[in-house]
Design a binder for these strands. Structure first.
Lengths: 335, 335
DNA sequence: TTGTATGCGTTATCAG
DNA sequence: CTGATAACGCATACAA
């Protein structure tokens, strides 16, 4: 079934069929109906490739994320895909992994698919140096780039993120104000947002006059799915330093810490307070339940798609949309 | 940059450029090099639409899943996407939700995008009646359909799944053999695999001569992310019936049960044994750790992609690939 | 309001 | 081995 077949059967020209298809109002109602009936009858769908060739667009958005099975990223992808879907866009998903070169490859690959825009989910797409981020600049010359949970200043790049620095600063401050001054900071990524969180923690410590906090900052290398490995790791740290508070950059890390405490017979929150990050479903899986920073992912996703739709419509949209996270207090903290 | 520009600069015809592009061996090496140099130099990429028009394919696989933020589905999508990626295929992802009509719509939509095949992730795409599954038959006439964790017999439909019936039968049997005869069965989906698991439980009970098990079978309607709701739900059930074992169709449900037990002061595994399903990361998030049935998702995903590649290559491939799940014993069981 | 003709960038089928 | 040229299915400027 092609547009020619339809036009034959309906006794009109292909131009008229095309007009009906594209909702042009310059078609007489009865002609429209005649054509529509044939289209329905034969269940005709225009060929996307031919259509794309004329329009240079397929109403498809490329979504890149490092690992769609990561709890946080998966949810982000889900929200974004849903919103795009309900606005008539489809999603081309690529899971890139965390290697920069591979990410670059996937990006150019997805651009060659003529997507209308690209969404980079998660802050691990943004590096520290100009050179590392050059690939984003290059691509932004061709299509708009949307950043979820990351920030990068460049024309045609739009950032939607949570102020992780401030959120972490406040979380740490509230723990400090509760009288806990020996706080272990556990993190697992040097991504854009990972750095922001860390800085927030450090500045909070300094602001409260604590100077020897560097030894309390520990990097965990393993998989976030291996809770027991995280627990062992924490247990190792506990041999060297004493702490009565833990703040982590991810909920899963905090879960590992809780597990460590349980094994070591340390009582939470009496002897140890724990704060996670992301406010994921993991927070309610453990006992006591985990206090965690909510970075309002759903709102971010919504804002991202709205901004994107605006951009594609040629409207002027904010280059940055910044949300404020907030600490959700549960059983692992007393304050 | 088009194929014409390249052919001009290289001093050959577009046919030759096309041959170089598509790796035809009927090109003299020096001609090939000459063309390749120009292509590299101008960083030329063929237009996908035009290419699709000729090839009727874009090496793209459509992936449908109800909810990519579901722990199990997200991991499945991840594995599949990765394997496809490394075999030169891209993935068009659609999250459909659980409504049948909406699923049908998305399916026909994604077919119209000329994908080379369609992967339906999760058993919720298969209904009970012939009529419910008609939409799958219709589509299978156009492209191969791959089912992950579900089974459906029809030409051009390939099923890869775990024998959930048997796995659940064995899990229940091992609990029964440990002397626990009052077992609560908690489930949350009437999907294809949901039914299989349930049947496995029922048959195990009957095989051990237990007759009044129906009242022990309970359906939970809410979200799997609301662990506390699950706990409350379990707590309500406990008012009516007494049980010393729990088996659930999903790890998250089991986590909710553990939470209930902790609140009620019931000791696991001494007074209550719990077995979950999926062997997800949640199993190690709780204390004691959750015994769970591993349905070898990763192997399923691998097999699915291998089968798909074979099918696309025109090879004869098995219509069904069935894996055996097995119980991974952890702290919530004594046996 | 409708029809005609052309372009879009490839691939594939022929000759040469 | 290489080059011309015809599809491919649609959108659209232009003509009627």
């Amino acid at each position: 079934m092609t547009i020619y077949d339809i036009s034959n059967k309906a006794g009109v020209s292909i131009a008229t069929v095309s007009r009906v298809l594209n909702g042009s109002n310059k078609v007489r109602p009865d002609t429209r109906k005649k054509v529509m009936d044939i289209i329905e009858q034969y269940d005709y769908t225009p060929n996307v490739f031919a259509r794309g060739m004329g329009l240079h667009s397929l109403k498809t958005i490329g979504i890149l994320c490092a690992d769609s099975s990561d709890l946080f990223l998966a949810k982000a992808v889900y929200y974004i895909e849903q919103e795009l879907q309900s606005n008539g866009y489809e999603s081309l998903l690529c899971c890139t992994g965390y290697n920069l070169d591979i990410k670059k490859n996937y990006l150019s690959l997805i651009v060659s698919k003529k997507v209308d825009a690209i969404v980079l989910v998660g802050s691990n797409f943004i590096g520290t140096t100009e050179e590392e981020n050059q690939y984003i600049k290059d691509v932004s010359a061709q299509v708009p780039i949307m950043l979820l949970n990351a920030s990068f200043s460049h024309p045609n790049v739009y950032s939607i993120y949570c102020d992780d620095y401030r959120s972490m600063f406040e979380a740490a401050t509230s723990m400090l104000d509760a009288g806990i001054r020996d706080i272990l900071y556990l993190y697992n990524a040097d991504s854009y947002s990972g750095k922001k969180k860390l800085k927030g923690f450090q500045d909070a410590m300094q602001a409260r006059g604590i100077t020897d906090y560097e030894k309390f900052i520990q990097f965990y290398e393993g998989s976030l799915e291996q809770i027991n490995d995280i627990a062992s790791f924490t247990s190792q740290i506990a041999k060297d330093i004493t702490f009565h508070g833990i703040i982590t950059s991810e909920d899963a890390l905090a879960i590992g810490c809780i597990k460590y405490a349980q094994k070591a017979g340390i009582c939470i929150p009496d002897d140890l307070s724990v704060i996670g990050y992301n406010n994921s479903m993991l927070t309610t899986c453990c006992t006591p339940e985990l206090s965690s920073v909510d970075n309002c992912l759903k709102s971010q996703a919504h804002q991202l798609v709205q901004t994107l739709l605006g951009v594609l419509d040629g409207e002027a949209m904010p280059a940055k949309s910044i949300f404020s996270g907030k600490l959700v207090k549960r059983g692992t903290t007393r304050f």
